[in-house]
Amino acid sequence: MYELIITLVLITLGYFFGSRAEKKHYKSIIEREKILNSLPVMASRIPIVKGDYDQILVSGNVVIASDYFKGFVASLRNLFGGRLRTYETLLDRARREAILRMKEQAQELGADIIFNVKYETSNISGQVSSKMSVIEVHAYGTALKKA
């Protein structure tokens, strides 16, 4: 009985704090994406601009944790299959945040464009499945700066 109450409390807390954090994060992501729009990033491996440029490695790194609510919904979803929607937003936020941080780095260096952008995603919560999932997203690319 106590276990059930504790679980319910954790889920409720996870929902309220988790969704508040998510809303706030998305708001900030969208705002910063607009600001940094002037600095294009692309996945192509070969620089598409010609001229004399310096190449600098830039990267953005994010570690983000799931909340109890997301984990609970996902574990129920595991029984039935389908989109793990609660994790989709989590990963979407992490990827966009990583790109933004990479862009911020490039902007500070005075770069014009970032090419050959790649992502690495890893789970750093360990092998225990009952543990809360914590993911790390690392975005990196080559920034070009006029010499």
Partner: peptide, 16 residues
């Protein structure tokens, strides 16, 4: 991502 409210998903899954 989805615009669907997460509580709706929880409800459907719980009933299921």
């Amino acid at each position: 991502t989805t615009k669907e409210h997460p509580l709706k998903e929880l409800l459907v899954l719980l009933i299921g």
